[in-house]
Amino acid sequence: MTQVNGSRRQWLAQAVGTTAALAWPSMAARAAEPVVKVGLSLPLTATSTADAVSSTNIVPDIGLDYLAGFRAGIDAERHGMNIETVALDDMFKPELAKANVEALEKQGVVAISGLWTTEAARAALPVLKAASLPAVGLRSGAPDLRSGKHSMLFHLRPGYEEEVSSMVDVMGGAGFTRFGVLKGHDEYGKTCLQLLQSNPRAKIVKASSVNGGAAEMAQAAREVVSAEGVQALIVLAPVESLAPVMTELRLRKSPFLAPVSGLSHVLCNKLAVARDPVYRAFAVTCPYQNPYTARTDVAGRFRDAMADIGLDHADRSYSAFEGFIAGSLVARNLVAVKSTPTREALARSLRSRPHDLGGMRIAFDDKQVGYRHVSFLYKSPVDGIFRA
């Protein structure tokens, strides 16, 4: 078993050393009990886009933090059940995500988690359907994956439509209704721009799609906010774009001091702990409570678990918290099945009743969505902490 100790960088070095498959049995599991395997396909080593917009690789914080939280959630709720997590690196490649799910299915896993992007989820969907394999906690909020037609997809976050609507409502309440949009060349950016364009409370004055480096992203942002009538900027590009974009808009000639906002896809540990003044007042939608400040029982258990693991500042990581929620839910329902869990029994247990994780209630509806709450956070100009 690989113990997660020390810094995140040290853990990354351990995780990607000589194998792409990372397997951990439960802590102090009873050896006589049969092993129940849960699989994950996550981006553990690659940049988030083929053409990264900065030299900073933020993906280890995202994929590895989610994995750390998921494992901690499993250990918190397994109650002696011998649950083993098996994680495979998909490097943000949909075809590799599909291959990972195929390999995990052959290993006999009872559930899958991860599948970070819309493209990855769509690629893996035929495998999940054919094997009746539950996928718990997809990151994608794409409408076509949340139609209710896919009985093995269990969503634990609001969709892109809810996030876009919430952001438009909050911004509109403050008098901002005319937006510029900066997006990347991916399904996420395309889908969210369409949702913004169809929202009756939002007027898209100018939108720009960029697939280049930091300089190109910063220049595109400047051109968008310079368009006549733009009151606020919405960033639908990878999180790596924020540093050059915010630096250009806040610090360069003719600073743009109006709101700059994004959706939850940019939330990561590095952004959460960043104290650089260029990020101050950056606003973002969030599917969960702030794990660092929330007083709920589930947030408290999460912070304690991260402290036990020894990851630096992981108690501020939204990805780790999301993983903790998914892992807790999976383990709790595996235990509830009582007999040797099967994929079908786990799916029935997830659907059968509401699940109270301690200040967070999950109840799957006819769309297979268990949680729809959206918060709107901003970077405090005083201490840099995300606050509601």
Score class of each variant (00 low, 15 high):
20 A>F: 03
117 T>N: 04
368 Q>R: 13
186 D>A: 10
165 S>A: 15
350 L>V: 07
319 S>W: 05
115 L>R: 04
365 D>K: 10
155 H>G: 01
197 Q>A: 12
261 S>A: 14
344 E>P: 03
226 S>I: 07
239 V>M: 15
367 K>P: 00
63 G>R: 02
124 A>I: 05
172 G>K: 08
38 V>P: 00
208 S>L: 15
220 A>E: 05
201 R>V: 11
144 D>T: 12
292 Y>N: 13
323 G>Q: 07
151 S>H: 15
78 R>N: 09
344 E>L: 14
20 A>C: 03
267 L>E: 03
35 V>C: 09
81 M>W: 06
273 V>I: 14
193 L>F: 10
212 G>V: 11
88 L>M: 14
266 V>A: 12
15 A>K: 01
233 L>G: 05
330 V>R: 02
240 E>Y: 10
269 N>W: 01
111 A>K: 02
215 A>M: 11
314 A>S: 10
167 M>W: 05
384 G>Y: 10
115 L>V: 07
272 A>H: 02
256 F>L: 05
196 L>K: 07
129 K>G: 00
69 G>W: 00
18 T>S: 03
36 V>M: 05
387 R>Y: 08
188 Y>S: 01
168 V>D: 01
360 M>W: 01
78 R>A: 12
76 A>E: 00
325 I>H: 00
222 R>L: 08
304 D>F: 09
145 L>M: 11
94 P>T: 07
178 R>L: 04
381 P>D: 13
28 A>G: 09
232 A>W: 04
249 L>D: 04
137 G>Q: 02
142 A>P: 04
95 E>Y: 11
35 V>Y: 04
67 L>E: 00
17 G>K: 10
240 E>R: 13
15 A>V: 07
211 N>A: 15
319 S>C: 14
194 Q>A: 14
141 G>Q: 08
365 D>H: 08
226 S>P: 06
380 S>F: 14
288 Y>T: 01
204 I>N: 08
293 T>R: 12
358 G>T: 05
67 L>I: 04
106 K>N: 07
380 S>N: 14
80 G>H: 08
175 G>I: 06
34 P>R: 10
208 S>Q: 14
200 P>L: 10
374 V>K: 02
107 Q>I: 05
105 E>R: 12
354 P>S: 09
334 L>W: 05
131 A>E: 07
60 P>V: 03
88 L>W: 06
255 P>V: 11
343 R>N: 11
84 E>T: 15
229 G>A: 14
291 P>H: 11
219 Q>G: 13
25 P>E: 01
239 V>T: 15
147 S>V: 10
381 P>Y: 12
60 P>K: 01
87 A>G: 06
133 L>R: 03
352 S>D: 15
79 H>M: 11
289 Q>N: 11
109 V>G: 02
369 V>N: 06
186 D>M: 08
325 I>M: 01
272 A>S: 10
64 L>E: 03
373 H>T: 09
165 S>E: 09
99 A>Y: 06
367 K>T: 13
38 V>E: 00
16 V>H: 01
102 E>A: 13
386 F>T: 09
77 E>M: 10
35 V>R: 09
149 K>N: 14
